[in-house]
Nucleic acid binder design. Sequence first.
DNA 1: ACAAAACATTATAATCAGTATAAATTTATA
DNA 2: TATAAATTTATACTGATTATAATGTTTTGT
Lengths: 163, 163
Amino acid sequence: MIKNMRVRVELREKPEKPWSLDEISQFLSQQGIRPSFYRLKIFEYLINERTHPTADEIYEVLRKDIPAISRATVYNTLRLFLEKQIVQLLNVEKNEARYDANLTWHGHFKCLACGQINDVEIKDLKLADLDGYQVLEKHLDLKGLCPSCRERNKFKEQEGLNG
Amino acid sequence: MIKNMRVRVELREKPEKPWSLDEISQFLSQQGIRPSFYRLKIFEYLINERTHPTADEIYEVLRKDIPAISRATVYNTLRLFLEKQIVQLLNVEKNEARYDANLTWHGHFKCLACGQINDVEIKDLKLADLDGYQVLEKHLDLKGLCPSCRERNKFKEQEGLNG
DNA sequence: ACAAAACATTATAATCAGTATAAATTTATA
DNA sequence: TATAAATTTATACTGATTATAATGTTTTGT
């Protein structure tokens, strides 16, 4: 009798087609998470949107369809998802926890102008001597200006900042 | 008449010998920061210790020698150092801002058992297509178990965790 | 099906790192 | 020395997150 057995699934980087509630329900069950309505909806948002939302962003979006949902439920559910390791926590910015259902190894670029976070493909990473260390999490976070924000501000950039 | 001109200095990864208060004073002046006593002491701690401390850790340590110092001064000073870009902010952990006076490109490993943060040398990093992006900050954060904590817990690791 | 246990959700209060404010002190300079 | 500018302080505040405790909902054993 096997208990507490979970199948670890490498989530695909971009879903060719969105996950159905049925698929999500099955997936959550596999991971030892009872697929309640709110959990389905929260995971659906994370896996099908991919905007690296904050807890509050999720709350505000879902509230439009489900006015009864509470902030606490969103926080509780995200904490559960983290514990069960089906989402990862991004600390790109201080005081701004973001959540990502894409567990493949990739980096994040945050635009300091528009605030958007984009995925960055990592071709290769070589580190020195981590013998004896057990690495459980890796995060690569970049910050700067995205192409469209640079375009929008070309004038200022050419002028140069010397403050 | 040149104003607001600063010399950007790549700080050495490990100081062979600690920076003297005189050197720090000169350095802060170069960077456009008036070298007040508290600023000297805070930067001295950051540059000579290299423990990636939180604001509160700095406050508690300095308070032993300088009981008059206030928490607000430490926060104010660290914010100033960030603005002037002579230290970098580490967001390895949520709700735990840490500060690093080493601005050379390196990663950080946080041990989940003892909480210590060690530097990690990055031999090589190749990213895909960031054409059009302007990268201003890079952070590589690892988490896991450090050698001494693994040693301490060898028993548990061998047993395996299947929860 | 029924009771008990386990789990899920909610509203509210509490926490805690960090920030803003405004007064007091120190330093620079006319 | 006066006056302005910068620095430091104590205190109050903010805002994201967590804890609490009450309520509602499934699951499980009988």
